[in-house]
Design a protein around this nucleic acid. Structure first.
Lengths: 151, 151
DNA sequence: AACTTGTTGCAAATCATTTGCATGTATGGA
DNA sequence: TCCATACATGCAAATGATTTGCAACAAGTT
């Protein structure tokens, strides 16, 4: 169940963003899944990967807290309305999502990195995270559309 | 009800993205609301602004078609899970959303403008739109947090 | 004017996410 | 180490935006 190494546990305990965040068994397992994830996961997918018997509502509540603290990044996909989650700390990625087949293709780099907006300073807004999705058509679907015409 | 000028109607009829898109009375009214909108709207807000009696499901179905054609841009807000829509053609804006109070602050510019990613070329993905939201904490909420501590 | 095919309205269904409440437990202090 | 208490969990029910089935309609075509 709880496969966290001492080092990882320590990381959670000492992360400034997690101050006052109770490290329950459930939360450790969830954090572990996020640590090992190779891509952003939906709450449901996280639940499937847990080897423990945890309520889905607990997964949602935990993710909510982590997102509020900026420890986890949440991305909503307009193609299916699901939210996906990944650790903010991980090298984060953005995706191109095909409007037809809904497949996701990772971007090579983050266009937001190092970006500073005039307005942010003006209104004194502290950005802790961002969500970016590019929408369009993948190679395969464009080929298919070309031969069918659009409906 | 139908306040489209001949010019605007012509625009819809001739837009390449709308080829094969039947211009019904309902769709003209919906497009008109989008044209006149000063900010991204939810489906519900669009319905309220319609002076015609149109089913909410029709609004959704129309928006869906327009999004698929890249004529309308859809943004999902992770703070409340609602989708907002605006014409892709309009000068589009992105927002900073406060994780505490959920207020939206527009960005002065679009960080994606002119951005080209290596991967897009590699996988031959045609980007037609994008969705970007910056999350963080606004001035007011930061001040409030400082005095209360986080829970 | 008739046809064909996509569109609408309505109401019911979906389905991810949220919430109330009674029970359980992590964490700090004695 | 043990307690108290505030915060977490599980369960099941509620929510609420979005989707869908289906029969009646209508846009664009021939």
């Amino acid at each position: 169940m709880d496969t966290l190494s001492g080092k990882e546990l320590l990381q959670f305990r000492t992360a400034p963003q997690l101050k006052g965040f109770r490290l329950t068994r459930e939360r450790r397992v969830i954090l572990n899944v996020l640590l090992e994830a190779e891509k952003p996961l939906t709450a449901e997918e996280i639940l499937e990967r847990l080897q423990a018997d945890i309520a889905l509502s607990t997964v949602y509540r935990t993710l909510d807290k982590l997102v509020r603290r900026g420890y986890v990044q949440q991305t909503l996909l307009s193609t299916d309305g699901h939210a996906v989650f990944e650790l903010t700390g991980k090298a984060h990625r953005h995706y191109m999502v095909c409007l037809d087949c809904h497949r996701m293709f990772p971007l090579a780099s983050c266009p937001i990195k190092g970006f500073h907006d005039r307005s942010a300073e003006e209104v004194d807004f502290e950005v802790v995270d961002h969500s970016l999705v590019l929408y369009g058509y993948c190679h395969d679907c464009r080929a298919r559309r070309k031969s069918l015409g659009s409906q």
